[in-house]
Design a binder for these strands. Structure first.
Length: 598
DNA sequence: ATTAAGGCATTGCCATGAGC
DNA sequence: GCTCATGGCAATGCCTTAAT
């Protein structure tokens, strides 16, 4: 028998090997390739081969059942049509890392697919519900009914979500749960994977869990679908909501997406009728907006100038014993640290950017690479002891407020006020307490980012702040002519429609596929030459819009230089085929490539 | 993510030849 | 006879490709 074997290499091809055994499909084998021993997976069996000098399979590593089911292999072929990766790479995503080595295995899957007699039509739903606990309640019911017929995959964006969800579901389904997440130790992951083979029905995990589906899968749930954690940013790139959608199409089963808001991609699918939107338009019990056209906090020489209204709000709520949340986009005490005597600016040694100064931790931090050092007491160059913090970070504001209101307790002991950055809003809210009032400071810093998704993201952030706030959200805005502000008081659908309309007009995702190729190398000139070469190759394709090469910001980071090229096309296939081509140019060499696809 | 071989291009050395 | 320029070949190095 001839076995067609794929490897975890960037090679598209499958390789033929001879084996006296049969029924090897889905099994891992140890074979020789180019004088090296490698672990591969048999994806097909054939009777004939065109290859001369065929080699024999050394060892069949899966002695009893195969590692991958036939259905999983079928899914690999399906994914191959959507993503620019080889069969081998895609196959190996579905294999626990412990089994990617030549570990022998002797287990048989106990899951046998039952043919359900009368299957109702498959459903794909988005549940719009801001309260995560209400969503969980919905999921719990759905899980319970689906478990009667088969297995369920429940994906959450991060491992901290996982803990909360596990705690909740444990009570009801503890004997049936298998946990899969990428931070697990290899052995732990493997033993949880074994549980699936042994018939644990509820697979709970982060984005990778979607690939470890059993044959009797009945339902896939993706909570907080909008979360950025559902993108796998490295090669192989994938987007979990897309993979889940494909999987449910293939297996003809239900897909439940949930969250406070859908992503625009999902919303577009709702408009196209592919996904059903469930929005229990409950009575609007949310807090109200108060949008002020005013400056909030300005740094003035040695002191801060704070809008008196902020002080007034803090005083009033403080007297009434109510809490306030303040959202501010800058971490640390100051943005820079500069010697007032000689002008020396403390910079990241890896040439990324000026270092941010944190008084609380008494250290300097690079905002890009995470480098940190102890804060100096005197200037490195002139040894003057007058080092001046420049710019306003949230520590500095906190410091100011505490001086103003010495009776305030620090945020950890009792939350009189809590000062956080917007990025705390990236994951949805599992926060236990809510705030009486929220202050949104400097939101325009987020709007002015060179990012087509900035507005959308701020809209989501502001609404999440609203969910957390009981009384009033006070926004200090400085760009008054922005469609975001008008949208806040309207129905969310209006904003989504407006955003979709604008994206369509500007030829942006989700109407067009867009990929950003980031090249990095230690040598500036080699990098630019390579980037220009890539651009030249890309520009040959007239179905593609090519922008670049552009200097990244920061241009120099981690001692390396960065250039990016952006390509756009209305057709997914065009983009992916080009990326495939470019990937093959980067297999070796000092220049590295990262790709983000939207 | 590896390895070896082959291709292409650049560099370097030497020989030849022209000019002074 | 000496110097400088040119051409050819060998050596080197970087990059690409194939692998059953």
């Amino acid at each position: 028998m001839i076995a067609k074997v794929v490897f975890n290499l960037g090679v598209e091809k499958e390789f033929d090997y001879f084996s006296p055994e049969v029924n090897l499909v889905g099994k891992r084998v140890l074979v020789e390739l180019n004088k090296k021993k490698l672990v591969g997976v048999v994806i097909k069996e054939a009777k004939k081969t065109n290859v001369k000098n065929i080699k024999e399979i050394r060892v069949v590593l899966d002695e009893a059942g195969p590692t991958l089911s036939r259905e999983q292999l079928r899914f690999v072929y399906m994914l191959k049509r959507y993503y620019p990766y080889g069969l081998g790479e895609l196959t190996f995503i579905m294999i626990p890392s412990l089994l990617r080595s030549s570990k022998r295995l002797n287990i048989e899957s106990k899951i046998v697919k039952k043919r359900s007699v009368s299957r109702r039509k498959k459903e794909c739903i988005f549940f719009k519900e801001p309260n995560p606990y209400c969503r969980l309640e919905i999921y719990r019911k759905k899980i319970a009914s689906a478990l009667k017929n088969g297995s369920v995959i429940f994906c959450v964006p991060t491992s901290s979500h996982l803990k909360i969800v596990y705690k909740d579901l444990e009570k009801k389904f503890s004997s049936k749960i298998a946990l899969l997440y990428s931070q697990q130790k290899r052995k732990e992951f493997f033993s949880e994977w074994l549980k699936i083979k042994e018939g644990k029905k509820l697979i709970l995990g982060t984005r990778i869990a979607i690939f470890y589906f059993p044959e009797d899968l009945e339902l896939v749930i993706l909570d907080e679908e909008i979360s950025p954690f559902y993108f796998h940013p490295e090669k192989p790139f994938y987007r979990v909501s897309e993979v889940a959608y494909l999987l449910c199409q293939m297996k003809k089963i239900d897909l439940i997406l949930g969250g406070d808001f859908p992503s625009l991609e999902i919303f577009k699918m709702v408009k196209e009728g592919k996904i059903k939107l469930v929005d229990k338009k409950k009575k609007n019990t949310f807090s109200s907006w108060k949008i002020l056209e005013a400056k909030d906090i300005i740094s003035k020489r040695h002191s801060l100038k704070v809008n008196p209204l902020i002080i007034e709000i803090l005083r009033k709520t403080g007297e009434e014993g109510k809490n306030v949340a303040i959202f501010y986009p800058r971490r640390g005490f100051s943005l820079y640290l500069r010697c007032a005597n000689c002008g020396y600016l403390y910079f990241c040694p890896k040439r990324c950017a000026p270092l941010r100064y944190s008084q609380e931790k008494n250290e300097l931090v690079c905002p890009f690479c995470g480098y940190r050092e102890k804060a100096p007491s005197s200037c490195r160059r002139c040894s003057s002891s007058y080092l001046k913090p420049e710019g306003v970070g949230m520590e500095r504001i906190s410091f100011y407020f505490k001086r103003f209101f010495p009776q305030f307790k620090t945020s950890l002991e009792r939350k009189d006020f809590l000062l956080v950055t917007y990025s705390n809003l990236d994951t949805s809210f599992w926060w236990e307490n809510s705030f009486f009032c929220s202050l949104v400071l400097n939101p325009h810093l987020l709007l002015s980012l060179l990012d087509f998704e900035a507005t959308f993201r701020l809209y989501i952030y502001l609404n999440r702040i609203r969910y957390l706030t009981r009384e009033e959200v006070i926004v200090f805005r400085q760009f008054s002519h922005h469609y975001l502000w008008e949208s806040l008081d309207k129905n969310w659908l209006d904003f989504y429609k407006k955003e979709l309309h604008l994206r369509k007009k500007a030829k942006l995702p989700p109407f067009i596929y867009l990929a950003k190729l980031t090249l990095r190398a230690k040598d500036k000139d080699i990098l630019l030459r390579k980037a220009e070469k890539i651009c030249k190759i890309l520009k040959k394709n007239d179905k593609l819009e090519v922008f670049g090469p552009l200097k990244e910001y920061p241009f120099n980071k981690l001692n390396k230089f960065y250039y990016s090229i952006v390509i756009k096309s209305a057709r997914r296939k065009v983009i992916f085929e080009e990326i495939k081509k470019i990937f093959s140019l980067f297999r070796r060499g000092t220049t590295k490539l990262a790709v983000i696809i939207r």
